[in-house]
């Protein structure tokens, strides 16, 4: 029995029920036939059935091996995941104020340090990467990257 699979099964059923309820408020075609809600409703029904089957398969395996992840990761590695999520959120909320350059250098440097890179080497690498990305997207592809209050 794997907890992760049970969660996936449970979330699939919950999502299916949620989608199905939402589709009940969708309009029908003028001739009275089902319209925008039909396809999501069919998908929700199949998703719920598959979620039930996955849970059923896992519960029937209860007496077998405990399963679970093959590799046991340490707490530090899981904290790395939070750091990755954190730097993306940081970019989303800060880049329009601090500008692309500063935000990008800070998030890539901080993440490099977190993953074990040397301080100076990490700074140089993140500066070089950001300048390259800036040149490629801003100068070549003409993407207006966030300027921030300082204008870069």
């Amino acid at each position: 029995m794997r907890i992760g699979e049970l969660v996936i099964g449970g979330v699939a059923i919950a999502l299916a029920v949620f989608v199905f309820i939402l589709t009940l408020g969708f309009p029908q075609l003028p001739d009275g036939h089902p319209g925008p809600g039909l396809f999501p409703q069919l998908l929700a029904i199949i998703l719920a059935i598959m979620g039930l089957v996955l849970i059923g398969q896992n519960l029937s395996k209860r007496d077998l091996s405990p399963g679970g992840e093959e590799k046991a990761e340490g707490r530090e590695e899981w904290v790395n995941i939070l750091w990755v999520i954190g730097v993306i959120l940081c970019y989303m909320f800060i880049s329009e104020i601090a500008g692309f350059m500063i935000t990008a250098v800070v998030i890539s440097w901080v993440l490099m340090l977190r993953l074990g890179a040397a301080r100076l080497k990490g700074f140089v690498a993140s500066m070089a990467a950001v300048l390259f990305v800036y040149w490629l997207f801003s100068q070549v592809l003409l993407v207006p990257l966030p300027l921030g209050v300082m204008g870069y």
Binding site: I88, Y91, W109, M112, A117, S126, V133, P146
Partner: peptide, 27 residues
Amino acid sequence: SKNYLLPIILLFSIVGSFAINNSLFDV
């Protein structure tokens, strides 16, 4: 070293997602 490479990949991912519609929502 992946210690340097992974943050750079992430940077490309963020900017690449943003570039299509210039939207932070896409990030």
